[in-house]
Write a protein that binds this DNA or RNA. Sequence first.
DNA 1: TGCCAGGCCGGGT
DNA 2: ACCCGGCATGGC
Length: 219
Amino acid sequence: MAPTPTCVIERLRAYYGPPAPRHSDGPLAELIQTILSQNTSDVNTERAFAGLWTRFGSWEAIRAAPAPAIADAIRSGGLAQVKAPRIKAVLEAIEADRGELSLDFLGSLPLEEARAYLTSLGGVGPKTAACVLLFALGMPALPVDTHVHRVSKRLGLIGPTVNAEAAHRLLEAAIPPGEMYDAHMLLIHHGRVICKALRPRCAGCPLADVCPKVGVAVG
DNA sequence: TGCCAGGCCGGGT
DNA sequence: ACCCGGCATGGC
């Protein structure tokens, strides 16, 4: 019997402690930073974002810049030839839609409408959209990255064949809305611990007693 | 030294 | 509806 999401969250929080609050500079900054973070390490992401802001200093300057100039500014983040056109196109689309470079209007939309707008932008998939919704807008969306996906399968919160996109729907429906932030932070942290320190058999895992893949499940 | 990082897209089955 | 290759720098 697999543990419930609430049980898993409580156990992770008891073991690791409550996640620290995360600062956000607003939905547009969150979106651009999250695009830079796609399949990229934290340190490279921060370097790329700093490079972008140092070079241009405003959303308008980035929107107006040629994609190769944006690529130069974010090169240290990796995948610059992919991300530079994405960032430019996203800013152009927002400017065209709204007449200004701001995503603050999303805060007054229902969750699914805000998500639909974000994912309609090229280069913005379910994970990136969920980051903006959760971190910048405080909405109950769950970013499912590789860690959350893998750990959720391992703990039996979702089936072994559920893909990342479906995992967003299933986990958001199963996790209490007020727990979405802690669930995301704790599952990622736990995923990193499993990945780095407890391989290959999760020996010593603090959730061994409720993980169907490690020990005897108690619900 | 090689592997991989908090994805997403487009093309092929 | 899935599967897969491509993208690419820096840290361990």
